[in-house]
Amino acid sequence: MEDFYKLLELAKQKSKIDENGTWKGGSNIYLNELKSEVDEVLEEYEKNRNCFLEDELGDILWDYLNILIAVNKEKDIDIKSVFSRALKKYTQRVEAIKKGQTWAFIKEKQKKSLYEEWRNSLK
């Protein structure tokens, strides 16, 4: 996990450099790049070249972190909140499956909860 946080800090440094560079397009540039990297992962997966696969998976992680940083600037999202929400969301889903509920059932329940949260934020 220590490497993850080091990579996040490095992405934050790169974001500052990007403000005056060719990658200054914000989240859109990284979202489009993420699509490309997924294709590269699929290519390497089929070739059974693990070092290349790991490298491409790292590119996905890099682009994802840069998306978070860019969206943080553009929409004022809290990066820690993204991680907390993901942990809560998938903990609930895995626990629900263990209890015999379906993924779709708990997903729908979570969407309703998000809708309520959003509605309450408008008040």
Rank of each mutant, 00 (worst) to 15 (best):
residue 96 A to K: 04
residue 71 V to N: 02
residue 36 S to L: 11
residue 38 V to F: 13
residue 24 K to G: 11
residue 102 T to D: 05
residue 27 S to I: 03
residue 52 F to E: 06
residue 27 S to W: 08
residue 96 A to E: 04
residue 92 Q to E: 14
residue 116 E to F: 06
residue 28 N to L: 13
residue 85 R to D: 14
residue 62 W to T: 12
residue 46 E to M: 00
residue 119 R to L: 12
residue 60 I to M: 14
residue 112 K to F: 09
residue 30 Y to P: 03
residue 8 L to D: 01
residue 19 E to H: 06
residue 55 D to W: 02
residue 85 R to L: 14
residue 34 L to D: 01
residue 105 F to M: 08
residue 5 Y to T: 12
residue 10 L to N: 14
residue 2 E to V: 10
residue 86 A to R: 04
residue 57 L to A: 13
residue 115 Y to T: 11
residue 119 R to C: 04
residue 14 K to R: 15
residue 78 D to Y: 03
residue 82 V to W: 02
residue 110 Q to C: 03
residue 111 K to F: 09
residue 90 Y to D: 10
residue 52 F to I: 01
residue 39 D to T: 09
residue 76 D to E: 13
residue 44 E to M: 00
residue 20 N to W: 03
residue 10 L to M: 10
residue 65 L to D: 02
residue 30 Y to V: 00
residue 111 K to V: 10
residue 41 V to A: 06
residue 64 Y to P: 01
residue 59 D to T: 05
residue 85 R to W: 09
residue 32 N to S: 08
residue 123 K to E: 12
residue 89 K to C: 14
residue 43 E to T: 09
residue 99 K to S: 11
residue 18 D to F: 08
residue 14 K to F: 06
residue 54 E to I: 15
residue 8 L to W: 06
residue 33 E to C: 05
residue 73 K to T: 05
residue 10 L to W: 07
residue 105 F to Q: 11
residue 118 W to K: 12
residue 1 M to C: 05
residue 83 F to W: 12
residue 107 K to E: 14
residue 110 Q to H: 04
residue 66 N to Y: 01
residue 74 E to H: 09
residue 99 K to P: 06
residue 80 K to C: 07
residue 112 K to S: 11
residue 93 R to I: 15
residue 50 N to T: 02
residue 121 S to Q: 06
residue 100 G to S: 04
residue 109 K to I: 06
residue 101 Q to G: 05
residue 83 F to M: 11
residue 85 R to I: 15
residue 23 W to I: 06
residue 40 E to Q: 07
residue 72 N to F: 01
residue 83 F to S: 07
residue 83 F to D: 08
residue 112 K to I: 07
residue 64 Y to H: 09
residue 38 V to L: 15
residue 70 A to P: 00
residue 41 V to R: 00
residue 12 K to W: 00
residue 42 L to W: 01
residue 101 Q to T: 04
residue 15 S to M: 05
residue 16 K to I: 14
residue 44 E to F: 00
residue 79 I to W: 01
residue 52 F to Q: 06
residue 122 L to S: 07
residue 9 E to C: 04
residue 75 K to I: 07
residue 122 L to Q: 13
residue 88 K to E: 14
residue 106 I to G: 01
residue 58 G to Q: 05
residue 30 Y to W: 15
residue 93 R to G: 04
residue 2 E to W: 03
residue 23 W to F: 14
residue 103 W to H: 10
residue 29 I to R: 08
residue 61 L to F: 03
residue 74 E to K: 11
residue 58 G to E: 05
residue 123 K to V: 10
residue 24 K to W: 05
residue 9 E to S: 13
residue 6 K to D: 10
residue 30 Y to C: 03
residue 69 I to A: 01
residue 95 E to V: 12
residue 61 L to K: 05
residue 16 K to R: 12
residue 27 S to C: 06
residue 118 W to V: 13
residue 48 N to Q: 03
residue 72 N to W: 00
residue 106 I to D: 02
residue 30 Y to T: 01
residue 52 F to V: 05
